[in-house]
Amino acid sequence: MGQIELKGVTKRFGDVEVIPPLDLQINEGEFVVFVGPSGCGKSTLLRLIAGLEDTTGGRIEIDGKDATDLRPAQRRLAMVFQSYALYPHMSVRKNIAFPLKMAKLSQAEIDKKVEGAAKVLNLSSYLDRRPGQLSGGQRQRVAIGRAIVREPAAFLFDEPLSNLDAALRVNMRLEISELHNSLKTTMIYVTHDQVEAMTMADKIVVLQAGRIEQVGTPLELYRTPKNRFVAGFIGSPKMNFIGGTEAQKHGAHEIGIRPEHITVGTSGDWQGRVTVSEHLGSDTYLHVQTDHGIINVRSAGNVDVHHGDTVWLTPETANIHKFDANGSAV
């Protein structure tokens, strides 16, 4: 229950090929996150799986059965939309009950399931309100409630937290992770938030222009990015890239080093001048102008350097990533 497989799935809008043939295997119970820059086709891919768009080519299999031509409702998937897509004219109770009503369950059963979902999501005291009378986080929970009552084979989330403020986002992130731990249902989650991807995923799928750049666990992607794109996309602040003679010293066309893998001192490999220093207390972010361009550095704790100071930087040799002329890791 909840295994999804894409085989050569293609999507074209008119003449524009948004998704070139793509293969992907999503295992039962996995939490899979799609990340990628805006417009890379994350939503499109999700909607293809949901059945809200037709594939141009290829097959979609759910639990080993061909689902390519099934209507959305027949795929036993539930979706949580970015805008929540709650029915504004129905109470929270009716919203959550809607899919059950469509499935023609008995009223007693509907009531039981709605109460159950409301309890899990802390919505019990809001059941008779309209969506318009709820906060953003509560609305999001209703949308999730509506999804879980159906006991779907998999959940699809399209940037569900992007309309929430930062603090709430952290809370909801944890709630969704807990939900996954307790339900153990497959979840596919689209985001362009790094932290969400890294913290929630069992498996991250990095997309660019509809192509899969790399699939792996968060730490695999962090430690061994397959190419320059993934290296630059995963991790925050972004990896520094250095080309030219400095890269040739390491036998590569270009090297990459993450800001947290550089130490700051009074002596070292690269000399530079601090242009901006950001002191967060727990961390210090430095932007340093060197002969190799601007290099970002992240040091734990407070480092007492400021704008205009001269510093020396030393990369941790073990953590230097090397890329060839095509951008592939070597």
């Binding site: 949901a50 809200l52 209507r71 959305p72 409702a73 998937l77 539930a78 979706m79 939309f81 970015q82 805008s83 897509a85 709650l86 029915y87 504004p88 004219h89 129905m90 809607f98 899919p99 469509m102 499935a103 509506r146 159906r150």
Partner: peptide
């Protein structure tokens, strides 16, 4: 927003029900 109708579709509503239960009440 079209998303609401899509949500109804995901929730198992066929076209007639989508129009009767979701679109029409919203457009009252």
């Amino acid at each position: 927003p079209g998303e609401i109708l899509e949500a109804a579709r995901m929730d198992g509503a066929n076209l007639t029900r989508e129009i009767i239960y979701v679109l029409t009440p919203m457009a009252v």
